[in-house]
Design a protein around this nucleic acid. Structure first.
Length: 270
DNA sequence: CTCCAGGGGCGTA
DNA sequence: TACGCCCATGGA
């Protein structure tokens, strides 16, 4: 157990912001997280967070995962105060952070996300991990690591039947083949800048501009990436008829996008 | 450039 | 019961 004070972080907001698919609410204020072949439980009480790991693991793994080195307050303070819609959206999701997640997991997760809804995405990923992930047990609990490329490769296209991927199955299998045959290099993607990474990702079968931007933002932490989906386009048409001020937020558009997306998602579901 | 399939669940009428 | 809509993309 490790207890720490963290400003501007809200587990519920992060969990529901559509960037992670393997968080589960254990009880009010507590979430279980599976990432990097580790199982973590975090409890939030105001700005006090209790991590189920020790201090060493918190510092070496989770500090980075939660992007605790970035001052989101600075981003928030820089918002154009005359932009009522954005100001409202930021106030609504001010505890959101852009997680630094595993690149392979993000590539697969966001290929699955295309033309899909959040509950179904989570269900598919859970099935994939159960079948192709490493089985772990800790504290009398059983959990699966993320689906591994080599396991997916060995399973072939037939292995993906009954997962519910639909037409996305060939993209997932293709990505696994790409890793095994070294046509896709995760290390190389990590070394590229945003534009280069986006271009390289779009060359992967099943990845277009939208998914490439999601992978840049959530898997490579390129915070200038601005994934524009139907939520964003609708909101732009309604609230920014003269165009969204992209230039105003250059270099941190990804964070701005997350506030807008989360606000739209939540305000439409209530 | 435009059009449309392809899975499947869910909200809406 | 039907139909549109999903954090789109590839292929015709």
């Amino acid at each position: 157990m490790y207890e720490v004070e963290i400003d501007r972080m809200d587990l519920k907001q992060i969990a529901e912001s559509g960037q992670c698919f393997r968080w589960k609410q254990v009880k009010e204020g507590t979430y279980s997280i599976i990432a990097f072949e580790r199982y973590l439980e975090v409890t939030q009480n105001g700005s006090t967070f209790t991590f189920s790991c020790d201090e060493e693991e918190f510092n070496s793994v989770w500090y980075d995962y939660f992007d605790l080195g970035t001052d989101y307050g600075e981003v928030i303070r820089d918002i154009d105060q005359s932009d009522e819609y954005l100001k409202n959206a930021v106030g609504f999701g001010s505890g959101i952070r852009i997680l630094k997640q595993d690149l392979w997991e993000i590539i697969i997760s966001f290929i699955i996300s295309q033309n899909n809804n959040l509950p179904r995405i989570k269900g598919i990923i859970e099935k994939l991990c159960k079948k192709f992930g490493r089985k772990n047990s800790s504290g009398g609990r059983e959990w699966y690591g993320f689906a591994r490329a080599d396991s997916l490769y060995e399973g072939g296209m037939e292995g993906l039947r009954d997962i519910g991927l639909g037409y996305r199955d060939k993209y997932i299998y293709g990505a696994a083949v790409g890793i095994i045959r070294k046509n896709i290099s995760l290390d190389r993607l990590i070394s590229l800048n945003y534009q280069e990474a986006q271009t390289a990702l779009k060359e992967i079968y099943g990845i277009g501009e939208k998914v490439a931007d999601c992978i840049c933002l959530y898997g490579l932490h390129q915070i200038e990436a601005f994934p524009a989906d139907t939520h964003i386009f609708k909101l732009f048409a309604q609230y920014y008829p003269k165009g969204f001020p992209y230039g105003r937020y250059k270099g941190k558009l990804g964070i701005i996008q997350q506030y807008l997306f989360y606000h739209d998602l939540k305000s439409n579901s209530v």
